[in-house]
Amino acid sequence: MEQFFQQVVNGVMVGSSYAIVALGFGLTFSVMHVLNLAHPETAMVGAFAAFVVATLFTTNLLVVIPLAVLAALLAGLLIERLAIRPTRGRHILTSFIATGGLSIVMQNGAQRIFGVDPVRVAVQVEGVQTVGGVIASNMQLMTFGLAVAMMVGARYYVRNTRWGRATRAVSEKHEVAQALGVDINRVSQLTVGLSTAMAGAAGVSLALLHSQATPFMGAIFGTKSFVCMLVAGNRHIEGIMFVGILLGVLEALVAGYISASLRDMVAFGILVLVLYLRPAGIFGSYEHD
């Protein structure tokens, strides 16, 4: 039983990172009607930024995390300018392929700079918490706390701020929002920026949890996040969070009790199952297309 709860805890920690990346996917898709395939690469950028900062300058988390998030944000804004803005309003495949191209450039660019092998991110948060035999490291708890904070923040932004309301207006109908004087380019930047900054934080979390970063971490991780978004539906923040964590837990349990090699099949299994029952995700709709 202890082992079971341990797997659940580990799953929740990883799952919260899935959820944060999935949230960014969903936010960009809901608002800009664009699928940003390069989105998970910004998590990779965050992870490598953490590596660079930690290796060259300092391992102080209060410096490492903000700089990594900043790097991911800048990468996100670049993606927005290069591939999202020019493809807005076109067929969904256009943005899919344009951002997919950038994603390939980023993965292989990172490989070119940092090599194929994982790099070691030497930042450690000491200490563990033990509750009834179940162990959670302070690092895990911090990661989880960060994810929850971002979730709450994103929700607050969309619901309660002026730009958040403009964002929601744009997500309904671009033309109407434009007629009402909303600057769509600005909303686009804000949305993608927010999404990728969160992805950057998730990337750092992963890099710290596993003490490493690889050029292709975004590809594996991103696919699962994308699955989370599709399973939950793109418009429901709590739904995406729930599905992300659930996936993390299921993966941990499958890896722990059945076979580690089946772990990566879990996401696709869930996807196929859910989408046959509810073709637009559990909590509803991939817009109109």
Partner: peptide, 20 residues
């Protein structure tokens, strides 16, 4: 191989935007 993919990716992005 890495350079080739970088080229592919960049070409793909440019092509789909300027010549869908």
């Amino acid at each position: 191989a890495a350079d080739r993919y970088i080229l592919y990716g960049a070409v793909l992005t440019v092509i789909i935007i300027v010549r869908p």
